[in-house]
Design a protein around this nucleic acid. Structure first.
Lengths: 335, 335
DNA sequence: TTCTATTCTGAATAAATATTCTCGAGTTCA
DNA sequence: TGAACTCGAGAATATTTATTCAGAATAGAA
């Protein structure tokens, strides 16, 4: 059968299937071949371009907002995702995870030592990371202890494990709670060899993946690691956001609070020195926390949904003289 | 969810499915919905034109050849089918049947009394005729007796039944062999009420569907109703083709042969009077038979494959002074 | 020729997709 | 307030599609 004839056959089969709505079995009966063959013919027809399928394009990345964010905060990279509408925040995070994964993967190119924290958005991103394309000898470092006794699959521990498994690397686990009863206990832990060795890795991180928490809606509250009264105290001290269990004020500096010395996690001063900290967050209401983190240099690349990006830009355009000042006044300045 | 948002969702799902090669289950996981919903989303996306599927067009009807045939033979209608390449004659007939069915159906619009003969091409066409769109009170009349003792599914009997069933009409069966030992037996049969009543219907046919046989490859030979010696005799008498068990010469007039009076079928003189006789045939080698049938007005509408149509036109362009004359000389003129 | 190696097939089967069914949430109307 | 209705969802299931497998056909090499 000549090539041309073959194409006629493919076009005929494809027409019946795609245009007339025949099932493959029906096409098979017309052509006197097996259904299996029809399936193969159709595959060929698609491959040869005899059947063309176009999908109205859905551009999931908003380049314009990305540019604005990069400029506004001197970011290394902003990724703004147009998350398709979803019926729940959970579903939206899932979609965001899917869309963000290839971008995050790009950012992580060449990264050998990667710090990781917990968080639901972060989890969804990590879920969709591929098993290919990682640096050989990848080291994944848990940046903060575990929040609460109930193990969550969005804990730093779990996420670190997952990412190490995908990358075929080693996971360095802290194996401690995130919050301890007092500073002494924490310091005692710090003397433990295992904890010490992991904390030493904090200095040699190439990159880190972090979530950005607010005071209102964070894993700490959800996990009851912090009581409402404690949250109120933090708010009074000017805290607007949290990363790695460390609370910071509007400039992105850690708040001096009693809890500061009870936390097992990378210090914000250390985090600032990490060449690439990728923050992943979602939603409008995170604007103050995100803005602060970006200003403080805690996060150098931001992955955010379009809603959140807009909210963030709106927030900073009206805030400098109002909210920030107000907050600062509210509790005493620097943070 | 706004219409625009909805479309975003559809585009996203469609993109994943059609462009990225995700399964519906995978898309479902990304969107946090059920696979069933994804199936429905995709259907919507297709309906809304968010997904467009184009198939390189395969034009199954050759209008140019149709026109040429209609002009050359003063036909009421010619249908020329570009039959997709097939691995066997059987398969080709099947495809042809499929393509011809809607055209035949169109021709049969308004037909109340329809004559029918046997034949393999005819069978395939009839197979693909729909069960809708027939004239109420349809009458299907068997135009010739059964060829051979072995019942074939391409017999007039079977085909008539099938068409009557589809059309919700009545089938009038001849219930006799096509060839009888001698004229007397036949005439005796003609006196039977049943046969008589059916033969009376021959006069009131609105249309007929017939196959066109050759001397070389016909059901008669296949069914051994005619012996090779008999075929040779017919050839010597100038027969070039056969319809309804009646052999005709190059001008489409019945050959005067001994068998003529042993056949139970519509006479060619009667057939010529039927307003619409649709001949269905396939293949280059049928050219002489088809040409003769058309010239004799035995067939007023022709359904043929492109190959056959080309062969037919080539044949008539070179034949009038050669083959036809030769044949005529060969046996004695008129027929 | 005869022997691989490759390609093609359809039957069987695994996998994916469409549909049916049922339930529950929301709405309208008495 | 609640009955009746619509809508939209997923679980279960029916149907369709893709793949695997084993054998037949074909081509190429010796």
């Amino acid at each position: 059968m000549s090539e041309e004839e073959k194409n006629k056959l493919l076009a005929f089969a494809a027409r019946l299937y795609y245009m007339e709505g025949f099932s493959q079995g029906e096409v098979a009966r017309v052509l006197s071949v097996s259904q299996a063959k029809v399936s193969r013919l159709l595959k060929q027809a698609r491959a040869k371009g005899i059947v063309r399928i176009q999908v109205e394009d859905f551009q999931p990345y908003d380049g314009e907002l990305e540019e604005k964010l990069e400029k506004a905060f001197s970011l290394k990279k902003a990724v703004v995702l147009r998350v398709p509408p979803a019926s729940s925040a959970e579903a939206a995070r899932r979609s965001m995870g899917f869309l963000s994964a290839p971008k995050v993967m790009e950012l992580l190119k060449g990264v050998k030592t990667l710090g990781i924290t917990g968080g639901r958005s972060l989890m969804e991103t990590i879920r969709f990371l591929p098993s290919q394309g990682w640096e050989p000898g990848l080291q994944v470092v848990q940046l903060m202890g575990n929040v609460g006794a109930v193990a969550l699959e969005s804990d730093a521990l779990e996420l670190g494990r997952m990412i190490a498994r995908k990358g075929g690397g080693t996971f360095f686990s802290l194996n401690t709670p995130a919050f301890l009863a007092d500073g002494d206990t924490r310091n005692a832990l710090f003397r433990h060899e295992q904890v010490k060795s992991v904390r030493n890795l904090f200095k040699s991180l190439d990159a880190a993946l972090v979530g950005i928490g607010t005071l209102e809606d964070s894993l700490f509250i959800y996990q009851e690691a912090l009581k409402p009264a404690q949250i109120r105290t933090l708010l009074a001290k000017g805290a607007v956001g949290e990363i790695c269990g460390r609370f910071f004020g509007p400039k992105g500096k850690e708040c001096p609070s009693p809890y500061k010395d009870q936390v097992v996690s990378i210090r914000l001063e250390e985090l600032v020195k990490v060449p690439l900290v990728i923050g992943i967050t979602m939603g409008r209401d995170r604007a103050p926390a995100v803005a602060a983190a970006l200003r403080g240099g805690l996060v150098k690349a931001l992955v955010i949904d379009a809603e959140g990006a807009e909210g963030l830009l709106e927030y900073v355009s009206q805030e400098p003289k109002t909210k920030a000042a107000e907050k600062s006044r509210g509790k005493g300045g620097r943070a």
